[in-house]
Each structure stands twice: as structure tokens, then as C-alpha cells.
Nucleic acid binder design. Sequence first.
DNA 1: GCAAAAGTGTTAGGTATACACCCATGC
DNA 2: GCATGGGTGTATACCTAACACTTTTGC
Lengths: 223, 223
Amino acid sequence: MKKAPERLRFSALAVDAVVLGIVDGELCGLVSEVNRPPYYVNILGFLGGLINIEENADEACERVLYEKGGLKNVYVEQLYTFSEVERDKRNRVISVAYIALVRPDTAASYKFADASFVPLKKLKNLAYDHDEMLQMAKSRLQGKFAYTNIAQYLLPRHFTLSELQATYEIVLQKEFDKRNFRKKVLSLDLVKETGLVQDGVKNRPAALYEFSSQKIKEFQLLT
Amino acid sequence: MKKAPERLRFSALAVDAVVLGIVDGELCGLVSEVNRPPYYVNILGFLGGLINIEENADEACERVLYEKGGLKNVYVEQLYTFSEVERDKRNRVISVAYIALVRPDTAASYKFADASFVPLKKLKNLAYDHDEMLQMAKSRLQGKFAYTNIAQYLLPRHFTLSELQATYEIVLQKEFDKRNFRKKVLSLDLVKETGLVQDGVKNRPAALYEFSSQKIKEFQLLT
DNA sequence: GCAAAAGTGTTAGGTATACACCCATGC
DNA sequence: GCATGGGTGTATACCTAACACTTTTGC
């Protein structure tokens, strides 16, 4: 593979990953300290890194998630490409942004370098154009929650219907009626019983469910 | 604005535009001959071009649409970024793809260099990864038709409800009941009457409507 | 008066919403 | 036995889907 001719190669290419997960009932984003003097110091930003010559953007994202976040096998999807000329004040950098979703076990016990999960409502004044990235990631997630089974990537493999409902309520910022919610997810075949029940809880143990399909599938709106 | 350091600048950056419009009751894409020996000869592809150092991807797309397609003031939205290492066999090129929509007057009388509107079902074996781009553009358009007022960009400013219905049927490849369709679009306030009627038709003239909002707005699903 | 497309209402079935109490378990 | 969250049914309003005939115009 040849490089492009010199005059056409003015920009670096990066990926940024908006990693989302639920911690203590709140939707959180994974951020770390950005330290790029003189413009970006004492400021938070999402994980990001440059694309290498031998990889595509998806592969770069996967690598960055592992190298900078210690994350492997997480759900990712491309979000949007940010290309404002001055989006990085130091150099021209075009960034392909991704959304990644992690399950609660990963998010709750997260420990890697200086990266940490911070509730979205505390994520303001991030580095570069990461505020905009976050807004877009949030709307995209909410959109997909309504008509796909993407919620599975924010839940453990087995979960109770109350946990599922809580996940929807946290992401969509909206409450659901317990009975109607259950009827809906069951009638859509979104989830199915595992036959297992909770263990070690101090109240009546709930039945454990799993998603019917591991693949992203489209459903009717959960408004 | 400095360029990025040399070792980080291996790729050219391009935009490609999947321009869609309806001609003779068919959804068509705007393609032109690609002539890039030795790999891409006698083959069709969407309009595309390189991003310049002083512009962002949206601006590059707008410029390419004008320079290579003679198009101005058309609706555009970013679709997806294609970054496979070998997507262009000559050089490493990462491309930010866009969807653009043109109104029937533009599409029907289109004439610019060798570009032309070709029905989607005839667009096979396009250059680069443009087949994949087209599939993605088509699904995106169908998705947005179902829950936004994006249809306005494929219609004239004033249109009859039958034309609106035909547009939905062409894009979604699905027939609607005339009475139910009308009830739906009116109850959603998707469109409103202009008070005008058709002129010069040899049957009963239909009332002309316009979209209630010029901005992209979300609605309930038109399934 | 005929051809062509416009325009219009009703019914039935299904989906969405609102709402309150009993159940199983651990302590 | 009490505190905690689990689990369940019904009635109503609303929305969707199916369906056919009359109206207006140009020629």
C-alpha cells in the first residue's frame, strides 16, 4: 500500500471512543486526563489515538480501547466523523468517533491508568470537540434503545426484568410502568427466561432473563 | 494550522456523495464514469473528491457536489466513514461518505458532464466500496423516512398528497392505503395545505400541500 | 358521457395506558 | 412478622388496518 502523495496528506487521522456504561444507576462515560500543552491541560477527554497505516478505523478503535482503556470485546459502532479545521488547535486531526458499551461488571470495577467512569451530567467542558461527541453519542444511544436490542450491551448476560427496566429508564430518562414494561419486552420476544433465579438476595429472588438474540435486531419502538 | 507530523500523514482524505433523487417513479443515484487506471476503468462511481486543507468534510462535500455535479443547496447528511486499508487499490484513502437528496425538478432534467441519475437497481459493481455505500445510504434513507420529515427533500416545494404517497412508496418499497396514508400525515402535522390546487391536469385537480416544518423533525413511525 | 385521478368514513382488531394488590424470601 | 422487591390482570382509550364509492375536471 502506497501512501497518498505528499500534498494530499495534511491531516492526521484519529479515532475517539465514547465508552458508556452504567455505574450506580447512572449512565457514565469513560474519560481520562488530556495533557497536550499548551491548549489542552487539566482537562478530560474520551479515549482516542491515531489510526495506523496498516489498520482501518474499526481496528484502530479496538486497539485504542485496549491500549488506553484495557478494554476487550466490547460492543462498538461508528458514531460520526469530526473534521472541523480547528477541532484540535495544535494540528489538523480528523477523528472518526465511536460509541462503545460496557457491561456493569466492567464499569463498576473499572481500574485502568487514570481513566475512570464519570456520570454524563458531570462531563462538561471536555477537550477538543468531545462535548459535541458526547451529545451525539447520547442521542444515538437513546435512539437505538428505542428500536433495537442494543440494551444487552449495558447489562450482564443474565438479568432480572427490573434490571432491564432500570437500564431503559436510565438511558431514556423516563419511567415505565412495571407491568406494561414486562408485557412489552416479552411480547416483542426481546428477552427470554433462562430458568435461573437470583441468589443471595434478601427478598424474593427474581427470575433471570437473557436477550433472545445476540445480534443487533430491530423492534418496534419502546416509547 | 500546521500539518500533522509527516509520519502520521499516510492517508488522503476524501468525501463521496451518494446523491439520490426520484426520476420516472424510481429512486436513482447520481453516478459518473470513474477512470483511474489500472484498477478502475469503465466503471461507475458516486461523486467524490479530496478534502482540502482549509475545509472540513461538510464543506468538501458541498464543493464536490458543485464542482463535479453542478449541484447547489441540496440536502446533505453524513452517512459513514469508510476506511478499509485496501478500499482504494492505488493509495490509502479514507472517505467520509454523505447522502444528498435532490428534488424531482433537479433530478428529471439533470445534465452535467458525464454524470447521470441511474435507477438503484441497475447500480451494481460500482468502483471502490461504493456498492456498500449505496446499501448503507438506502437503509439510512428508509430509516429516516419512517420517523422524520426528510421526504421533503425528494419532493417539490408544493406537492399533492398522491405525490407524497408515491414518494413514500418508492423509497420504502411498500404500498399504502390512500385514506389511511392521508389521515396519518395530516394527523401528524407532517404537511399542511397551501390553498393552491394543481393546474393543467386533465383530471380533477388535486390540492397542493407543503411540509409544515422545513427543519428535520422527528415523528412517529410510518410503518 | 367517459376517462382519470381526487377525495372521503366506518368498523374491527390490536396496542398502549393506567392502575393496586398479593407473594416469596431473609432476617 | 416485617421489610424488600417480585410478580400479576383488567378496563379503557387510542391507533391501525381494511375496505368502495362519489366527485371533479378535461376532452
